[in-house]
């Protein structure tokens, strides 16, 4: 196992920088997800780490060893591709054995290790099937076994769940997490699905247009986003533009269209945007921050009531309340939230 370090890595396609001055460390044994919309550079980053692409600038290191110019076959990296990229002309056992065979391992060892890993991913009995004779979930596990059997220093997963149906996806997600923890293997997991990133990651690295936006554990990304874009990309969020008035009892005091609010935040002055998650708002006449409004729309989500509430000066807030009491459109209510549940980020873009 090894950590992975990217230092000021830039990769251009023509005049477009797919990855721009990316500095990122994946710690030893950590699962880091690269999250971002399509075209943000996450797959390019993965290919740079795998050695399929070479950066124009910057260095890539595995545990301190510079691998920037090392070809993929010498990096000892296990990869699970989005379409699995199984060898269609080889059986399950031959697919898994491939990495050991090209390393010139003796046949007896190959057989033993292939059997071992197939048992681990619960594919015993399917050794002699061809990939097209397997279900999507089974193919996915073959891909995982093939990548893991070589004891890679780093495991790379490129949207490995994208081709599975919703129910299986949930199952495999936890399975991958379990396996990764058990093996303690340094893992980079590329996805555009924030729910997947939340469940799996030790830390999330958010990319936008090839530029790193924030690296942090899921909870920090969600509760303490570095920018409005991050808050918007991960989960639902209400944004209230405002002017910082000062600090009071550790809270930031911000003047917004719906009144003066107290919130958490790093900024101390200037224009900010206050981010309030829909589930941070509750119906309460006694909270620190209070906003009066009228319910415009109501959607029943089973575990939640999803509301759109009209507030002063044309502000519309998205609110998610536990459905303990039904609330109907036209009803007036007072919304409240505590300072630590809202986060001010600098106004930008």
């Amino acid at each position: 196992m090894a950590s992975v370090q990217l230092a000021e890595v830039t990769k251009r396609f023509g005049s477009v920088a797919a990855v721009w001055r990316l500095t990122l460390e994946v710690r030893d044994g950590e699962l880091l997800t690269l999250l971002g919309p399509s075209g943000c550079g996450k797959t390019t980053t993965l290919k740079l780490v795998a050695g399929f692409l070479a950066p124009e600038e910057g260095r890539i290191r595995f545990g301190g060893r510079d691998v920037t110019t090392l070809p993929p076959e010498h990096r000892n990296v296990g990869i699970v591709f989005q379409n699995y990229a199984l060898f269609p002309h080889m059986t399950v056992a031959q697919n898994v054995a491939f990495g050991l065979e090209v390393r010139g391992r003796p046949a007896s060892e190959v057989r033993a290790r292939v059997g071992e890993i197939l048992e681990r991913v619960q594919l015993q009995g399917l050794e002699h099937r061809y990939p097209h004779q397997l279900s999507g979930g089974q193919q996915q596990r073959v891909a995982l076994a093939r990548a893991l059997v070589i004891n890679p220093q780093v495991l790379l997963l490129d949207e490995p769940l994208a081709n599975l149906d919703a129910k299986l996806r949930e199952e495999v997600r936890f399975y991958i997490r379990h396996l990764q923890r058990e093996l303690g293997i340094t893992t980079i997991y590329v996805t555009h699905d924030q729910a997947e990133a939340m469940v799996l990651a030790d830390r999330i690295a958010l990319l936008r247009d090839g530029v790193l936006q924030q690296v942090a554990p899921p909870e920090e990304i969600y509760r303490r986003p570095r920018s409005r874009w991050v808050a918007d990309f991960v989960g639902l969020c209400n944004f209230l533009p405002g002017q910082v008035l000062g600090r009071e009892d550790g809270s930031l005091v911000v003047e917004t269209p719906v009144g003066v609010l107290r919130c958490a935040g790093a900024a101390d002055a200037g224009r900010v945007v206050v981010c309030v998650r829909p589930e941070s708002l509750r119906q309460d006449a006694g909270g620190t921050n209070r906003i009066a409004g009228v319910v415009r729309e109501r959607t029943f989500l089973g575990n939640l009531l999803d509301l759109r509430v009209s507030c002063p000066r044309g502000v519309v807030l998205r609110v998610q309340l536990p459905p303990v009491r039904d609330i109907r459109p036209g009803e007036s209510l007072t919304l409240a939230f505590e300072p630590q549940d809202a986060w001010a980020v600098p106004e930008e873009d």
């Binding site: 795998a50 050695g51 399929f52 070809p71 993929p72 076959e73 010498h74 990096r75 000892n76 990296v77 296990g78 990869i79 591709f81 990229a85 199984l86 060898f87 491939f98 990495g99 090209v102 390393r103 093939r146 990548a147 070589i150």
Partner: peptide, 8 residues
């Protein structure tokens, strides 16, 4: 690419 990553 998969073959390359596996050491070929």
């Amino acid at each position: 690419l998969a073959a390359r990553s596996l050491g070929a």
